[in-house]
Nucleic acid binder design. Structure first.
Lengths: 191, 191
DNA sequence: CCGTAAAGTCAACACTCGTTGGCCAACGCT
DNA sequence: AGCGTTGGCCAACGAGTGTTGACTTTACGG
């Protein structure tokens, strides 16, 4: 009994997150994760049951979206971009796991679809409904399309910055990126 | 001797492209590719030497970039977006291979960096140099940054449309996407 | 102070992968 | 017809994978 159970469990989880983020699901082997955590591979199975279960808990995090109602209407795009980077810069591991595994694992892809539909689209629809004052019918809402355009730009820049490490996006100041992405998101949000 | 050598070779290559595009490098097994081509796995080695060599020839294609000098200056963004989709819609397989493997294979990532630096950045630098009439010094050219922003948006929308199949981007008309992406690229290109 | 449960190690299983070498069969030529 | 070349298959090897069970060591409580 060197370490406590909870302590070892956290150690395994941390090593798993790092490996999954750096190498993706297939190339991150249980043996390598165990070696990083300083224990035997069998302990991974003991504490998490299977590699897939380990990945499930390692990839179980929330990507909360802010309320767009605050922030001046002319700068909502910039505010949204800033929010994303504020979250990503403090922990890019989760995002790297998401992008590295989404291209292979259908479950992760489905999760992104859900986040887009349930967490990104509604605030945008609300923002646009608030824009049209009065009982404007806003016939066929294109909020899903606008949300998807926002997602495509943000996923793209995240891919280039954290996964592909494409210069000069990978080394730019987050502030500079926000300044450049702001007008784009603004265009997608409010035309 | 059922088929000619060249015929079988093409058959293997076609199966390989489909598998690599759909599953990425690791999950596209030599055995599965051989089964798709209707021959024995050993034939793959005979004709291509190794799995990595097979991948190299399967992923060896050019992503040519158009000349931005034509097209009216106010619509250069839209023209560029249209060009990408014209190329992608006729053969999305190559692009899927690129995106699915770039997140795992460092060589593919490096290839993207090279394309960005040698094929995308120069035309943009030239476009901007042509914009400033006269001997404007254009002190520190931010063409690399602008090119990277363009790349981030286009890679992002390609990821969403062809790999993640994120609704509604995956089913939208290419024309509609071009219309929405045009202003964004325009902003990145000419401020 | 000893027994017991927890924390950890070890060796192995069953499987899949890329890869190899030997064998077989069909065609084209003289 | 005979022969060599060529396209193809079969069986197997060696390495690496996730996973399992039995064994060993450590700490703690009566």
């Amino acid at each position: 009994m060197r370490r406590s159970a909870e302590e070892t469990k956290r150690s395994i989880l941390a090593a798993a997150r790092e490996r999954f983020a750096a190498q993706g699901y297939d190339r991150a082997t249980v043996r390598a994760i165990a070696a990083d955590a300083g224990i035997d591979p069998s302990m991974v199975m003991r504490y998490f049951g299977s590699k897939e279960a380990l990945f499930a808990t390692a990839a179980d995090f929330d990507l909360a979206i802010p309320d767009l109602s605050r922030a001046p209407r002319e700068r909502v795009g910039e505010a949204l971009a800033a929010h994303f980077f504020r979250r990503w810069e403090e922990d890019s591991g989760q995002l790297r796991i998401l992008l590295r595994t989404a291209v292979t694992d259908e479950a992760v892809t489905e999760r992104i679809r859900t986040v887009l539909a349930e967490q990104i689209t509604p605030p945008i629809a609300e923002l646009r409904a608030a824009g049209t004052d009065g009982p404007a019918p806003s016939a066929s809402s294109d909020a899903p399309t606008r949300a998807a355009m926002v997602a495509s730009q943000m996923l793209g820049v995240a891919l280039c910055r954290y996964v592909l490490r494409l210069p000069p996006v990978d080394t730019m100041d987050a502030d500079d990126l926000v300044a450049r992405l702001g007008p784009t998101l603004q265009g997608y949000l409010v035309d």
